[in-house]
Simulated assay, not measured.
Amino acid sequence: MKITDDRAFPAALTALSGVDFPWEYDEKADEPSPANIDYEPYEEFESAEDTADWLRQWTGNKDLDEAEFRLFGKDGSGGLAVLWLVREGPLTAQPVMFFGSEGAVGPVATNLGEFLWLLAGGVGPHEAVESGADSGVPNEELRAVAEKYSGTEPLTPAEVLAKARAEFPGFVETVDSWCR
């Protein structure tokens, strides 16, 4: 199987880097607003060197190769959204995974288009892994990005997560096997 070595930032991710992701604190409830999406998009992929450093530090495994990953966004605590290059085809066809700063890890979407629908539903990668699909409030600006760039019919966050978890049920165990 030939996995792409492409490092060109997909148009969909470029579009996300122009979106101001909501983050507000609800003073009355003394908690973050439910409309928040804990996601900070990058304007380009992290370098191969930075990706290798991250992967080796996160897993404690100095033998891992960063070539299977493209880091493209983070949450407020430093957790990372990544494309995991495990199938033939372009970067947009690769699954989106999340590696949390506190050890949470999991599949987020089966491809970049479905990730856009997750965000449009108000759920970021951190929320997807930590809280599930019912944690968000739909966002019209992100829906417009998904409609333009996803190449798929609309999906709810629950549908996106169910598909990702069904296709990659052993992802957590795979990552655990990398850890030292």
Score class of each variant (00 low, 15 high):
residue 80 L to W: 08
residue 119 L to E: 12
residue 79 G to C: 05
residue 80 L to Q: 13
residue 106 G to F: 09
residue 77 S to F: 11
residue 112 L to H: 12
residue 85 L to S: 08
residue 118 L to E: 12
residue 118 L to H: 09
residue 68 E to R: 10
residue 68 E to A: 14
residue 75 D to W: 08
residue 87 R to M: 02
residue 103 G to K: 08
residue 113 G to Y: 04
residue 62 K to W: 10
residue 66 E to Q: 14
residue 104 A to W: 13
residue 68 E to K: 08
residue 119 L to V: 02
residue 112 L to G: 03
residue 120 A to H: 06
residue 89 G to M: 14
residue 114 E to P: 01
residue 83 L to R: 06
residue 62 K to F: 11
residue 105 V to M: 15
residue 86 V to F: 03
residue 67 A to N: 07
residue 78 G to R: 06
residue 79 G to W: 01
residue 119 L to G: 01
residue 84 W to L: 13
residue 70 R to K: 10
residue 109 A to D: 13
residue 121 G to A: 11
residue 83 L to P: 03
residue 89 G to Q: 04
residue 113 G to H: 02
residue 110 T to Q: 07
residue 112 L to K: 11
residue 101 S to I: 02
residue 66 E to A: 15
residue 101 S to R: 02
residue 96 V to R: 03
residue 65 D to S: 15
residue 73 G to S: 11
residue 101 S to N: 11
residue 100 G to V: 06
residue 83 L to Y: 09
residue 68 E to Q: 14
residue 101 S to T: 03
residue 70 R to M: 08
residue 92 T to G: 11
residue 81 A to M: 02
residue 71 L to T: 09
residue 99 F to R: 02
residue 93 A to S: 15
residue 101 S to K: 12
residue 100 G to A: 10
residue 85 L to F: 12
residue 69 F to W: 15
residue 115 F to T: 00
residue 91 L to Q: 04
residue 63 D to E: 15
residue 100 G to C: 10
residue 62 K to Q: 15
residue 117 W to I: 04
residue 104 A to N: 15
residue 114 E to Y: 05
residue 103 G to V: 08
residue 107 P to S: 13
residue 73 G to W: 11
residue 97 M to Q: 12
residue 96 V to Q: 00
residue 106 G to D: 10
residue 110 T to Y: 02
residue 115 F to A: 10
residue 112 L to V: 05
residue 70 R to P: 09
residue 63 D to S: 12
residue 109 A to Q: 07
residue 96 V to H: 04
residue 114 E to C: 00
residue 62 K to N: 07
residue 116 L to E: 13
residue 88 E to W: 04
residue 122 G to D: 14
residue 89 G to K: 08
residue 69 F to L: 15
residue 76 G to F: 11
residue 93 A to Y: 00
residue 119 L to K: 05
residue 110 T to N: 14
residue 72 F to H: 14
residue 98 F to D: 04
residue 103 G to M: 02
residue 121 G to T: 02
residue 77 S to Q: 07
residue 66 E to I: 00
residue 121 G to V: 13
residue 113 G to K: 00
residue 88 E to H: 06
residue 108 V to G: 03
residue 72 F to I: 01
residue 112 L to W: 09
residue 104 A to I: 12
residue 76 G to P: 07
residue 71 L to E: 06
residue 80 L to C: 05
residue 66 E to R: 03
residue 86 V to R: 11
residue 104 A to G: 12
residue 113 G to N: 05
residue 64 L to T: 01
residue 69 F to I: 07
residue 81 A to R: 03
